[in-house]
Design a protein around this nucleic acid. Structure first.
Lengths: 113, 113
DNA sequence: TTATTATATTGCAATATTACGATTAATCAT
DNA sequence: ATGATTAATCGTAATATTGCAATATAATAA
């Protein structure tokens, strides 16, 4: 079918999957990494930087914005995007919760550990 | 088009996006959470637990296995799946690297911080 | 061997995603 | 107002994903 049966899953599971989906495209990862380095960016810079069409970048920015990871403010004729610190921490926490719920293997531990 | 231009992006970016894509479905998140709780599971249990068809669960397990996050061993007539500890740490590290590269806001800091 | 049980694979329909050209909207400079 | 610049939206084509019934495969039991 191509439609996810989200009613079968918990809110947390759907939320985590939704955030992961936003990160599930290299262009959006690239945009975030660019933002992490440069603090801000505008659509036009990303078009040059990434080599995708203007409309495509705009679409990816929209998805990042919808998820709350980034925010944009009108800066004259262009729009300046930056990371949303609060949401960033939130998402970091969501992933941490998942990854921390599995015990890190202790290399000093014997076979009975 | 519907095809991702992966040649435009770095190996790291494509890798992170690929892992995120595996986590980008609530059924796969649910399977991982089930494994985190129970240590092992078999297809049949998940079919009951999640309410998806056997073929569908099998497909999700295949994707998780392909990404290396889980591994399956034949246990008589069924297959016992568990988390791959090494790969888990690896993936945890990849996400941590991303999330740690943005400074956590310090609440003790004034407006000029 | 023949059932039985459990999982994987195949084939297909429905839906989602990706990418981009064309158009629209909004701001600024003249 | 007019033109230039930038970004968002629309429409569309190509491809990917999701879900399941049906079938195939593999291991064990009788």
């Amino acid at each position: 079918m191509g439609v996810t049966k989200s009613d079968l899953f918990s809110k947390t599971q759907n939320e985590l999957a939704a955030i992961a989906k936003v990160l599930a495209h290299p262009a959006r990862v690239a945009i975030l990494q660019y933002l992490l380095k440069s603090n801000t960016c505008i659509n036009g810079h990303l078009v040059e930087e990434l080599g995708l069409a203007q409309a495509t970048i705009s679409q990816h920015l929209k998805e990042l914005k919808n998820s709350g990871i980034i925010q944009g403010t009108i800066e004259g004729v262009s729009v300046s995007y930056c990371i949303n610190p609060g949401r960033w921490e939130e998402i970091k926490g969501i992933f941490n919760t998942l990854f921390e719920s599995y015990p890190t293997p202790d290399p000093n531990c014997g076979p009975n550990c």
